[in-house]
């Protein structure tokens, strides 16, 4: 070792400045606290602002009436019905595919480039703006690329009888039961809206279900295989029942995202004024957020301020209920391994 190069390090060279650094520490702490509290403050202000504007307008008419030219009579009955049906259908459509994809990725997928690509793709889909899903839904479900419009090559080629009904396309009646009919294209129906919403929440459903399945410890699976059962048997009878509450929680949270979505359904052509309750899933519809948007755009303050706020209150209550149920389920079935 080159001893002569050792420079003696003297403690005196350290200014330390402890008191100044502690002051910086305190200031920093306050700045950080302010940035956290800013978000929470805005949340509080937002809720108060809406409650003040709308609480008096949450009254029976809001739930019993359709939109009206007189603000005091206006309600959003059809929007509430539309939201509920669209959400139920969305759950119905996205659950099997989302959970299936999650099971595939967690239990079956080999570690290869295709799997990597699927993962990357799911993450990317989660970041696609919701309005883009609306455009996808419009082309694929709403119009079906125009295949069933009056003079398309497809219709001409197969000589398909085209109706000029609500959706203007092809209509099958299955066993003459009205709700077992299929309209092609899906048009502005609730089916089209729900399918679009299903695609929109699919990435979230997959990610949440994967987490729930991953939380099941491998020892459970090994225990199952040790009894000489097949893979699906182990997954179906051991893994999924344990993961189910987690999957359900993720599902509810995903649907709570869908219930507040407005833009994709507007692009799909959902109506703002629907003065009837839907009879079948092929009917035209509106949903709560679209009704709220419609009210916000009207000039009279009764709509713009009060009815809109009242609608928002209903929407927020539904959201909090859904989140509450999800949290309750998670707590109730939480298993510590």
């Amino acid at each position: 070792m080159e001893a002569e190069k050792i420079i003696s390090i003297d403690t005196k060279h350290y200014k330390e400045n402890i008191s100044r650094r502690n002051l910086a520490e305190k200031i920093f702490n306050v700045i950080l606290l302010i940035s956290v509290l800013f978000g929470l403050l805005m949340l509080t202000v937002l809720i108060i602002d809406i409650a003040v504007g709308g609480i008096a307008w949450v009254r029976p008419e809001l739930f019993e009436n359709y939109h009206s030219r007189k603000p005091e009579n206006a309600g959003m009955k059809s929007a509430i019905a539309g939201s509920i049906i669209v959400i139920l259908l969305t759950g119905l459509f996205s659950f099997p595919v989302g959970v299936g994809a999650a099971i595939y990725l967690e239990e079956y997928a080999p570690k290869n480039r295709l799997t990597d690509f699927i993962n990357l793709n799911i993450n990317n889909l989660a970041g696609v703006p919701s309005i883009v899903y609306g455009m996808l839904g419009l082309v694929v479900f709403g119009r079906m690329f125009g295949l069933f419009s009056k003079d398309s090559w497809f219709v001409n080629l197969f000589n398909i009888p085209i109706e000029s009904g609500a959706t203007g396309g092809w209509k099958f009646f299955l066993f003459d039961i009205p709700w077992l009919e299929i309209h092609l294209p899906f048009g502005r129906s609730m089916v089209a809206g729900a399918l679009t919403m299903s695609l929109l929440i699919l990435p979230i459903v997959i990610i949440a279900s994967r987490e729930a399945i991953r939380a099941v410890p491998p020892s459970i699976r090994e225990g199952g295989y040790a009894l000489g059962t097949t893979k699906w048997h182990v997954i179906g009878t051991l893994v999924l029942p344990i993961a189910f509450p987690g999957i359900l929680t993720g599902m509810i949270l995903s649907l709570s995202r869908a219930i507040g979505e407005t833009a994709p359904l507007i692009i799909m052509g959902a109506f703002t004024y629907v003065p009837f309750l839907p009879k079948t899933v092929w009917d035209q519809f509106t949903v709560i957020p679209i009704q709220i948007y419609n009210w916000i755009t009207l000039p009279q303050p009764e709509y713009r301020v009060h009815l809109a706020a009242a609608g928002i209150l209903v929407l927020l209550v539904i959201l909090f209920l859904m989140n509450g149920i999800a949290i309750y389920l998670r707590k109730k079935f939480e298993i510590k391994w």
């Binding site: 099997p96 595919v97 989302g98 959970v99 299936g100 994809a101 099971i103 595939y104 990725l105 239990e107 079956y108 997928a109 690509f117 699927i118 793709n121 799911i122 990317n124 889909l125 696609v128 883009v132 899903y133 455009m135 996808l136 419009l138 082309v139 694929v140 690329f145 695609l199 699919l202 990435p203 997959i206």
Partner: peptide, 19 residues
Amino acid sequence: LFGCGVFSILVTIGIIISL
């Protein structure tokens, strides 16, 4: 299940084609 897994790729393709 594999079909479900690959479905997300179809969604991306669908977005690109329809847009």
